[in-house]
Amino acid sequence: MKETAFFISSENLSTHLDLQPPAVPSGFSRTANRILVLTASLVVTALVFCASVGPHVLAKTGHQANSQGNSNIDPDAMEALNKMGAYLRSLKAFQVDSEVTNDDVLDDGEIITDNRTNTLLAVSPNLLRAELKSDEKDVFLFYDGKNFTVYGKLVNYYATVPAPATTGQLVDKVYNDYGIEIPLVDLFKWGTDDSAIRKITSAFDAGPSTVQGITCEHYAFRQEGLDWQIWIQLGEYPLPRKFVIRTLTDDARPQHSSNLVWNLAPSYNDAAFTFEPPAGALRIPLKDINSDGTQKNQ
């Protein structure tokens, strides 16, 4: 599968760090308008198409194995995931702004919800930039195909390590070695052999649903430890518009929710993905979570 790299960036993808998330690029509104116009006619067409062709396509992709003896899996819901994954993998570049809520569970089971804003700009196959903003931090991630940098804007410290050759490899390496989850990492997983789609034990179509004015189809899935839902845009751009993931391994069942705003024609230059330390920024090590010590020099 072709890898697609994503990066987050503030609107201004210049090399400077003073960027704040800009408004959605113009490409988005154009796209949104088109989609709205096309949606009504496409919905009917798509439904008919899915009903008649879906099972055939599914058989070809081999995912019918999933539903062996499991009537809880609606093949159309699985096929919608496959289509979305294939579409995501076909994107050359995209920017996604996401509003996230994420539950923390306190010792006594009380849930506290944390709000975050993530911006991700990715260019296939090996450019990525992200900004992760929450109440207590404002962190930028940079990946230019050679190095990976974490920059904490509030503390003005950065850590840089050598990086693998593709974004697909990067997202796993930084997670496994440094405990860093690239925001919306699922966007890099769907449509690849790494996808956890085979773990799904229940899948159904909950029907049409509108997310931020965009008509979507709402699907619900279960897999070990997680109940999750996804809203996939109807029409010729099968993009995920919303995810809700409920973790079942804690009795309190904390929930993660992301609303996504897409720009499929982001403007950027390649320098936006290479970290240039701002004035006064100091280098620190990136803690390797698999060793007791801290990497001294990277």
Binding site: V100, N102, D103, D104, V105, L106, D107, D108, E110, I112, D135, E136, Y175, E181, P183, V185, D186, K189, W190, D194, S195, A196, F221, Q223, G225, L226, W228, F243, I245, R246, T247, T249, D250, A252, P254, Q255, H256, S258
Partner: peptide, 25 residues
Amino acid sequence: RRGGGNYGGGNRNVRSSANSSVNRN
């Protein structure tokens, strides 16, 4: 709110957080 590393200034430790990915092993 956040200072001292927990919520509300009391002894309110975070025991877990919601997963943000369905594809992680």
